[in-house]
Design a protein around this nucleic acid. Sequence first.
DNA 1: CCATTTATGCCACTCAGTGGCACTTGCTTT
DNA 2: AAAGCAAGTGCCACTGAGTGGCATAAATGG
Lengths: 227, 227
Amino acid sequence: MPEAAPAPAPAPGRQDRHRLPLRERKKLRTRQALIETALDLFTERGFDGATLDELCERVEVSKRTFFRYFTSKEDVAMAPTQDMWTALLEDLESVEPEGRTLLAVLQDVLLGALARMPDDGWARRVRLSHRLAERSPSMDAHGLHFCDRTGRAALDVLHRRFDLGGAADPRPRLALDLVIASFHWALHTWIARPGSPGRARLADDLRDAFAAVPGSLTLKPGPTTAR
Amino acid sequence: MPEAAPAPAPAPGRQDRHRLPLRERKKLRTRQALIETALDLFTERGFDGATLDELCERVEVSKRTFFRYFTSKEDVAMAPTQDMWTALLEDLESVEPEGRTLLAVLQDVLLGALARMPDDGWARRVRLSHRLAERSPSMDAHGLHFCDRTGRAALDVLHRRFDLGGAADPRPRLALDLVIASFHWALHTWIARPGSPGRARLADDLRDAFAAVPGSLTLKPGPTTAR
DNA sequence: CCATTTATGCCACTCAGTGGCACTTGCTTT
DNA sequence: AAAGCAAGTGCCACTGAGTGGCATAAATGG
């Protein structure tokens, strides 16, 4: 049970990495090594089967140091997806609705954040990460919790910037959860695809989910013996 | 990280409690005592501030026994809500759509399960439980995970019983998540109400959320300076 | 090159959760 | 009523996640 998380400091874009001071670059490298090694290790032995001591030994870092980068064992394995949500949160600060519905705005921002993820293996990391989550309850729980927290933060930003019909109006929350649900479905579908499709394919699946949103309100169960 | 959960055996209805053999009644009493005491203890000292040893001492049960009833520390504090989701799952086995949309069916079943919760302090337990969850990340995560798992199980039941447009259709999943999101919003609103309103008030809040679903697709952000 | 700040290593500690075995207790059998 | 069975429980030792504290190493700024 982590008390207070330090600043997670997600990975910044590749291009400005050279500009950073030496100390920061070293930290980034350690963080990246921890993520990469953790994903491999957990995939090999299973999330519960691998211990933090093993991970720290491989990366040649003390356990104490690990917990200065990540708040928990689950946290390190979820880092790839979290980076995307964090990017989304940043974009919300500057987006302009321009007559679109809230739902459309959220959908576009999510697609935008997705498109901006690095191409250097991010897709592979996300895939490994979510395959692990499918098999480890605690990882899954951690991921859902992060989604939920970030979602609330996103709504706070929007409530601050726009008039969304009062704090007691459930509609913004429902719209957001619809987008999150779409994302989860897309991710699930994308993970299950043969081969190792990239970002673009995930974006396509996401668009499919978005397109199905209106129909989800009117879908009627067919007859009992339809198969 | 629990490996495999034993049968959680949620509390059965009050009326048939007398019919149970002595041994079963004793188990029920122990389970109930653990839940009740846990909620009080965690509320007093905070979820992280209280240890399982303290809880077991108060209930006069060994820690080993605690883990024969609940899979984790979080689990015991979430039991009240879980009972409702489990009831919902049972109801889904026998519901008939009768021309309604999937969304309407899910909404009605949820309201039905809610109405059937015991009146003996269930509302209070749920309130305590969710106040704790608001303040403890790990409890919140555990609750979200359970919701998600149960939701998937619910969809499995429906897919087995009805034709929902194929396994690759995102609409059923979106409809379900919409209902879950409605429930979360209702719960959040209900918890924040002054006094200690009962089940009925929660059902009202839930109906409000359901009514707002269509509007969540068309809501447009107002002008930046609307306040 | 030194002073300060910042990241890390090391060690001991708490507490959640598990495995194993002995023991009690409610229920059944004769 | 005594004996037998099996479910449920207690006790104890153990693993592993996560934290606190302090000493050390390394990067930065002057």
